[in-house]
Design a protein around this nucleic acid. Structure first.
Lengths: 391, 391
DNA sequence: GTGAAAGCGCTAACAT
DNA sequence: ATGTTAGCGCTTTCAC
C-alpha cells in the first residue's frame, strides 16, 4: 500500500541500539511521518500535511493522523523541516559578556520577544574578542539562523558583519554602531548623554574628570580619534565637547582604557586619585567597572561625594543601596533588547519598517554621588550629604 | 561527467531572487558540495569527504577541493550535516531567569565550556513557569539538541524530564534536584548550609528569623512538606532543623513564599518587621530578593544590623559595597555551570563518569549584616558596627 | 582512493 | 482531498 516504507527496521543504527523489543524505551530511531502515515493508513504526504498543518486535509484524515501521532508519540524533526523550508526559527545573538547584567537584561528582552513569535535564541559570548565574534557569526550562519543580533566588539573591524548584510541575512546591531554598515541599529545617543552628564559635573565645579573603560586598545587618548568602539568614542567625545563648551582644558590625561578585571580597575582608580593633579570626579563606563571603582575609593578611605564624585553608566538596582546612592546614566536596556528582536523578526518576515523607529534615550539619574570638587563644599547632587565611611 | 548536477540553476527559489547575474552579491541559493565538486572536477562524495574531513582523500583532491571551496566561498550547511549524523553540536539550556545574575554567571560557565568542545547553546528562559519549561524542553528536543541542561522550576512535576532521560537524551540538572530522576545533578547541599547559617544567626541571639522566597506555591509553611522546589524545601528544612537543634520554637509564621517583584517583597518585609512579634533577622533566598529587602529596611528607617540582621543567598559583588557589607551564602555558580556542561558533554560523547564527581559547597561569608537581635547589643558578625543610615 | 547511489525526515510540486 | 515523486545538502554504504 505505501511503498515509501520499505522495511520496518530500516534506519536503525548507532551504538545505542539495544534490542528491537518494541515496548522498551531504549530503542533508537525516532518515529517519522512515514510511521504515522502507515499507522493512520494514509500517504506520507497527507500525514505530513496534517502534522505540519498546511495544505488541504479532510477532517477524517486529520483526526486519524493526529491520533496515530499521539499514539506513536510522534515529534517533528525540526532540522528536516528547516532544511526544506529554509527557515530555522532560530536567531543568533552575539554579545560581549552575558555575565554583565547589562547584557543579561538585554538578552531577556530578546528572548522574551523571540519566544512570542516562535523563535529560539542561540546565544554566543565573545568576551568582547573580535576574532571570537567573527567565528561566532560564521558558526551561526552555518547553523542557518534566520537572523542575527550582534553587539559588535569593534565598530571598525566590520567585514564579517558587512558580509552578513550583503548576503541578505537579516541583521540588527545592538548597543553600538558599526562603520560602513547601514542596518537597523538599536542604541542610545551616547555622545549626547555623555555631554549632558559631563556638563552636570562641570557645573558642580569639576574640571578634573576621569573616564574609565574596559575597551581594549592601544590608541592614544586624543579626542577625535575613532576608537575601536563607537560607544566609547562617543562617550569620550561627549565629555570633551562639554569641556570645550565650558572653555575648560580637556582632561585627556584622565581617560583610561584597558580596564579589564577588578584589580586593574582598582589600580587605575588609585592612580587617578593619587597623582599630582588628581581627578575630582570619575565616570565609569559600565556597572562592572563602577563596582570596582567604588570599592577602590572605599579602600582608599575616601568619601563619596565629599572627596570624589562618582558617576556610572547602567542603572543597576544595587546603585540605590549604597550610601549615598549612586548617580547613574540609565539606559532602557530591556526595551532595547525587545526592539532589536522586533526589528530583526520584522526583517525576517519581510515586513516593512514601522512608520517611526523607536528612539531610545539614556537619562541622567541624579542621586547622591556627585558633589563639588574636593573639600565637599557643595553638595550639588544629593539632598543630603551622606558619604561612604572610610574603611 | 557528474550527473548529480542536473541543471545549473536548479534550486533557485524564494522571493529574494533578483537577477541571475553571477557576480551580484544578492543572489540566493548557497553554494553546496555539488558546486564545489564540479569546480574541483571530482565527485560529490570526494568533495564532501575533503570538506567534512573524513574518509580517504588524496592530497591532490583535497587541495583542489579546498581551493574550489575557498573560491566559491563555500560554507557547510550544518542543518544538513546534522540530519545525517544525528548530532547538532548544540545543547539546550533551560533556566528560570537569565536576568538574574546567578543564572547569568552559570550560563557563562556553560557557554564557555560548551564552546571549548565545539558546542553551541540554545538558551530558553522559563520565568520559573512549569508549563513554559515543559514547552521549552519539547521545542529543544524537536530541534534535536544533543543534550539538555535544566534548572527545573519544579522538583515535583518532572514527567517531562523523566521522559527526556528515558528517551536516552543526555540531561543534566542544575541547581536543583528533581524527584524520581536519577541523573547527573550539579547543585550544592542547601540543607546543610542553611542549617549552618541559621545556627549562626541563632548563636547571635536570634529566635525570630524570617525566610523570604520567590517560590510560587499555595502550600502551607509547615516543615517537612515537600515544596515545589528542592532548593527551597532544603533551605527551609535547614532553618527549622537548626531551631530544633537549639530547642527553640520554629518560626513557621515567618516563612514567606510568592515574593515576586520588588513591591511584593517590600510589602512582605514591612509585614515581617512591623507585626506584633516581629522578625529580628531576615534571610533572602536570592540576590534579587535581597536587594528589595534591604531597600525596604532602609525605607523603614531601620539599621542593619542594629535593628535587624540580614543574610542572603548569592555573593554578588555589590554586597561588599553597602555599609555594612552584607553577610552572604556564596555559591560557586560559574564553576557549577562549567561542571554541568562538562557532565553533559561527557554524556553526549558517551564517555564514562569521571572517578570522582566534583562536589560543590556553599559557604557562609561573614561580613557585617548580622548582629544581635534588636537593640544592637551585640555586634556578632562584623568587625565594626557600622549601620545603614535611615533614609 | 574514488564514484554512484541510497538515504536522513521532511516539504513541495505535480498529478489525479 | 489525496497520492506520487522529487528534492533540500549532506553523509554513508558499497562497489570498483
Amino acid at each position: 500500500m505505501d511503498r515509501n516504507v520499505t522495511d520496518a527496521t530500516k534506519g536503525v543504527k548507532g551504538p545505542l541500539r539495544k534490542a528491537d523489543m518494541s515496548t522498551d524505551a531504549s530503542r533508537r530511531r525516532d518515529v517519522t511521518v512515514a510511521d504515522v502515515a502507515k499507522a493512520a493508513q494514509v500517504s506520507k504526504a497527507q500525514a505530513a500535511r496534517a502534522l505540519g498543518n498546511y495544505g488541504a486535509v479532510s477532517d477524517d484524515v486529520r483526526e486519524r493522523v493526529q491520533a496515530a501521532a499521539e499514539e506513536l508519540n510522534y515529534r517533528p524533526n525540526e532540522l528536516a523541516r528547516s532544511m526544506n523550508t529554509g527557515k530555522s526559527n532560530t536567531i543568533g545573538v552575539v554579545v560581549g559578556d552575558i555575565e554583565n547584567p547589562h547584557f543579561g537584561l538585554a538578552t531577556r528582552g530578546i528572548t522574551d520577544t523571540a519566544k512570542k513569535s516562535g523563535f529560539n535564541v542561540i546565544l554566543v559570548n565573545t568576551d568582547e574578542d573580535w576574532a571570537a565574534e567573527v567565528d561566532a557569526v560564521r558558526v551561526l550562519l552555518d547553523k542557518r539562523v534566520d537572523g542575527l543580533i550582534v553587539a559588535p566588539a569593534s565598530s571598525v573591524e566590520t567585514r564579517h558583519l558587512r558580509d552578513v548584510h550583503h548576503s541578505g541575512r537579516p541583521l540588527v546591531l545592538l548597543d553600538r554602531t558599526a562603520k560602513g554598515l547601514d542596518v537597523d541599529t538599536v542604541a542610545v545617543d551616547m555622545e549626547g548623554i555623555s555631554h549632558e552628564s559631563t556638563r552636570y559635573l562641570i557645573e558642580a565645579g569639576h574640571s578634573r574628570i576621569a573616564f574609565i573603560s574596559t575597551l581594549r586598545t592601544n590608541d592614544s587618548y586624543a579626542t577625535g580619534l575613532s576608537l575601536g568602539s563607537s560607544q566609547i568614542s562617543d562617550r569620550r567625545d561627549g565629555i570633551m565637547r562639554a569641556f570645550r563648551d565650558a572653555g575648560l582644558k580637556e582632561p585627556d590625561d584622565l581617560v583610561r582604557f584597558n580596564a579589564d578585571g577588578p584589580e586593574t580597575i582598582k589600580k587605575i582608580t588609585r592612580e587617578l586619585l593619587q597623582q599630582p593633579d588628581p581627578a575630582t570626579a570619575i565616570i565609569a563606563s559600565d556597572g562592572l567597572i563602577g563596582l570596582s571603582v567604588v570599592e577602590a575609593i572605599q579602600d582608599l578611605g575616601l568619601a563619596i561625594p565629599d572627596d570624589v564624585s562618582f558617576l556610572m553608566y547602567d542603572d543597576f538596582a544595587w546603585t540605590r543601596l549604597t550610601r549615598p546612592p549612586l548617580t547613574v546614566i540609565a539606559q532602557p536596556v530591556y526595551e532595547m533588547g525587545v526592539a532589536a528582536a522586533e526589528a530583526l523578526i520584522r526583517q525576517i518576515q519581510g515586513r516593512k519598517a514601522p512608520a517611526a523607529k523607536p528612539e531610545f534615550a539614556a537619562t541622567l539619574v541624579k542621586r547622591g554621588s556627585v558633589g563639588g570638587p574636593s573639600g565637599g563644599k557643595g553638595g550639588h547632587d544629593g539632598l543630603r550629604k551622606e558619604n561612604l565611611p572610610a574603611t
